[in-house]
Design a protein around this nucleic acid. Sequence first.
DNA 1: AAGTGGTCTAGACCACATC
DNA 2: ATGTGGTCTAGACCACTTG
Lengths: 253, 253
Amino acid sequence: MTLDAPLLAPPSAPARGLARYAGLAAQWRDAITSGRWAPGSAVAAEQRLAEQHSAALGTVRQALALLAAEGLIERRHGHGTFVASAIVGAPMLRFFRFGDGAQAPNSAVPQSVVLQRRVVKASAAVARALSLSQPQDVLRLDRLRLLAGAPRLLERIWLRLPECAALLQHPSADWGDLLYPALARLCGVHVHRAQDDIQFAELSKPDASHLGLPAGHPCALVQRRAFDLSGQAVELRHTRGDARAFRYTVEIR
Amino acid sequence: MTLDAPLLAPPSAPARGLARYAGLAAQWRDAITSGRWAPGSAVAAEQRLAEQHSAALGTVRQALALLAAEGLIERRHGHGTFVASAIVGAPMLRFFRFGDGAQAPNSAVPQSVVLQRRVVKASAAVARALSLSQPQDVLRLDRLRLLAGAPRLLERIWLRLPECAALLQHPSADWGDLLYPALARLCGVHVHRAQDDIQFAELSKPDASHLGLPAGHPCALVQRRAFDLSGQAVELRHTRGDARAFRYTVEIR
DNA sequence: AAGTGGTCTAGACCACATC
DNA sequence: ATGTGGTCTAGACCACTTG
């Protein structure tokens, strides 16, 4: 038996090696990373998206599932679909276990003290980490993190300018103990992804004195690059803490 | 408008808070972890599974997608669906970067030399790690891993008995440089998941001499627990290497 | 050519959250 | 009560892999 006409109409735009759902996802991914869809805002209902794009519900759902897996949207049953907000942070403390009473992994947010805040010329290494094409100014912070009053982590932070310039116009006491929520609130910079590189080192004399440890004491050094929704690197951070307190668990497969 | 009869028949087994696809996945998950479906073997085609269980193709696919995400099956377009085999290993070397010529992350499999192989009574810590209810015998291995002839990692390994007893009946030279493939081939134990716990420590005098380092030298200590398909812990491994060569990258979100 | 997984449709019904 | 995402069906067609 042959058919004179296909039972189903072919897709209006003939897929160029790209599945329909992948195309929709790409389109919406761009809307998010470009900021046209604001972080935290609601996305149109599946049904409505399906009508708008003349696609079946299942196809729309497949596209949304892809974006959800990428962490760009969050779906809430019976409520709606929302553009991802900035991560509150990937606590540096998860790399350490300081035996402060509780033996459970520390859940408290460490107190933050900003030691220094100034604009400096980016070194070659910093420029590379922040994808700066030319030598350019960056915002440099030194920050001490304390747990139960005891200094535990020393952070050296470089932030992209002019994106993060608004931090300069507020006293650091107003930032709160977490940097990323402050970046989102004050600068409109939403940190969405980060990459931590861990190695072992020894404390310089000045670094050691901040942490109340002897010079040359072994430390863990965590080098982080943080990226905004568009994938642009916005922060480089070097965090140092006592090597004896370092503890990290990796799940394989 | 009311309907005298539902357009679609209700599921034969009324879901007890469990989605149909989740039930199918649970059933097949059990078949895999119990060994009824052998690692590497082919699973029946989607169409056939759908007929067998009187379910729609989409539902079967949803169940299989779940198992694929868990790493229990592997799907190959145009070929078939296969039960996952044992992982070849989560190379310990991924935690280290030894500057042997190439600066790229070492991809070569390090040579293995078994220093010691014997049956010992499990200590309390080992018994806990391997979920042994009573004090029981375990297979203890000491192994040195070499890169370009240079000793780089020292491993202390405890294996569950009697599961891994077959290793005792073959000369260690026949095992090859990777333990997990040997466990699968000789013992029928398929390592499917592992958990690595990282910390910094100092080398004891005997350990240091094996690695050609001075006693007290800082080292990275990776404590691994490896699990078979059923989730049973089968291996505990302590790996030590020069802390200065330690380097690890974590992706957040 | 035959068999497999991957995409897409069109629709019904269910479960959850909010007003 | 209404609207949202989640489940399920039944079927057609596409793309890939192998004999």
